[in-house]
Computed example of a mutant assay.
Amino acid sequence: MELKASEDIEAPIERVFAELADFEAIERQAMRRGVSVQRKGAAGAPAPGLSWTAGFTFRGKGRDAEITLTDYAEPEQMAFHSVSGGLEAATRIETVALSRGRTRITFVTELMPKTLSARLLVQSMKLAKGGIEKRFRHKMAGFAKDLELKLKGIG
């Protein structure tokens, strides 16, 4: 199952990508939302192989996820591979300069179930795909708006 959303931001591609690659800020934001995040390896310049362990609650149960940065090509794209139980996810974030001061961000996530319970979860998600896609696009739009305000110095 694939989820995809694109949003345009009034900011140069270099600044947008720098914000998307500010992993320390993203870690802090996740922790404020109740996710325990632990980076594996030294802090420094982002590069493939950088990884995190995250703990969170989903459907009333504690879950763990392993997230690995698999591709990093500044300022065009980065990709992640995540594993949580029997569910794997490949996430790609692409940035495209539409003009000197406008950037399009595209998020693509593909869910790949590896166990029967993960297949059942993904199958139920497919049945509700319209609503899930709508929420995904809505969250992406909110994220893009917040990012744009932050880059303008308003947020």
Rank of each mutant, 00 (worst) to 15 (best):
A25V: 09
E94V: 15
T109A: 12
K114W: 02
A42P: 00
L50M: 15
R33I: 07
R135L: 11
E110N: 05
K152W: 02
S6D: 09
K145G: 05
A21H: 02
R63N: 13
F107N: 14
G131W: 14
D71I: 06
L121M: 15
Q29I: 03
M31G: 10
T103R: 06
P46H: 11
G60N: 07
K134Y: 12
E148F: 03
S51A: 14
D64M: 13
A97Y: 06
A30I: 07
G130Y: 04
E24A: 12
A54I: 07
P48T: 05
F107V: 08
H138G: 08
P46N: 04
I26H: 11
T68Q: 12
A144M: 08
G101Q: 13
G49Q: 00
F107W: 13
E148R: 10
S99G: 01
G34L: 07
K129I: 08
A141T: 12
V35E: 12
L87D: 06
G55S: 10
F136E: 02
D64K: 14
G131K: 15
E27K: 08
Q77D: 10
I154G: 04
F143S: 02
L120W: 08
E24I: 11
P48V: 07
I105Y: 01
F107H: 11
T70N: 04
E76C: 04
K150C: 10
E27A: 10
D8S: 11
E88Y: 10
F143P: 02
M140I: 07
A141H: 13
M125T: 04
A42F: 00
S51H: 01
P46Q: 09
G86M: 03
A79Q: 14
G153R: 07
E148M: 09
R102A: 08
K4M: 13
V35Q: 00
L121R: 14
D64A: 13
F58E: 05
I13S: 00
R102F: 01
T53C: 00
A47Q: 14
K139Y: 00
V96R: 10
A118G: 02
T68S: 09
S36Y: 01
S124A: 12
T103V: 05
E10Q: 10
E133C: 06
E24N: 11
A79P: 03
M78R: 03
G34V: 10
R92N: 00
G86I: 07
E76K: 05
E74D: 11
I93Y: 11
Q29S: 15
E133T: 09
A18P: 00
A128D: 12
V16A: 06
A21E: 03
A54R: 13
K145L: 14
P113I: 11
L50S: 07
G34A: 05
I132S: 01
A79D: 01
R119I: 08
F80L: 02
T115W: 13
P12C: 05
M1V: 02
W52N: 07
R92L: 12
V96Q: 05
S84M: 11
R33G: 01
A11G: 06
E10I: 06
R104L: 09
G62P: 13
R32T: 06
R28A: 15
E2W: 09
K145V: 11
A118H: 06
E74C: 02
R63F: 04
E88R: 06
S117W: 12
R92Q: 12
E110H: 02
E7I: 05
G60Q: 02
P46K: 07
P75H: 13
